[in-house]
Amino acid sequence: MHIPDGLMDPMILFAGWAIALPVIAFAVSKVNRTVDESKVPFMAILAAGIFVAQMLNFPVGGGTTGHLVGATLAVMLLGVYGSIVVMTVILVIQCLVFGDGGITALGLNLLNMAVVAPFASAVIIRLANGKARSATSFAASWFAIVLAASACAMALALSFTLSNGAYGINGIVAIPTMLGWHAVIGVGEGLITMGVISFLAKIAPEMLTMQLGKAEPKPEVML
């Protein structure tokens, strides 16, 4: 879902930066206030692990693949603000060091995968209120991928409209195609996240209680 350079209208690229940066700055300030020494290695390993997991593509049929985004996993382990920080670091490194996603489109990529996906996950997790952790992790992952893909599809459609077809893809085609593929990719994301969360709940349940950006974490509540 990494948007390359030259695909979107410059106005949409600017809008991506304008929306993503204040949200990320807010998340960074929230994490700054609450992070402690004991969480440093865990955050670093989680971020590095998600980076590697994003490199592993799984086939979803029809000659298309998906890969883990990891936003929901990070939300469940670090809270929504911690997830935004971790996803931001990963996306910036992917762009600057590995050329995955265009540098002009980094704002949009941050918006989709480091802002929309964590908040979408957080909504589902909050609605579940700590019940049915495995099912919640699956639903939150699926919803996060589909919503992030919707945001990407909307950007494609708006780019097409604003530029009279010079950028983006016609929304009539872009929106159903993006949603169709990502509805399937979201199942893969959901299964992987559910597997990791279920495993951690058994072997290290305390890892599911770290919530950065909150003054007083509540051990029994996931978000």
């Binding site: 593509n57 086939p59 890969h67 195609t177 593929w181």
Partner: peptide, 14 residues
């Protein structure tokens, strides 16, 4: 690894 992801596929199809 040889196949594109959802966005790449959408771009390719269009």
């Amino acid at each position: 690894a040889m196949y594109g992801d959802g966005l790449e596929r959408t771009m390719e199809d269009n």
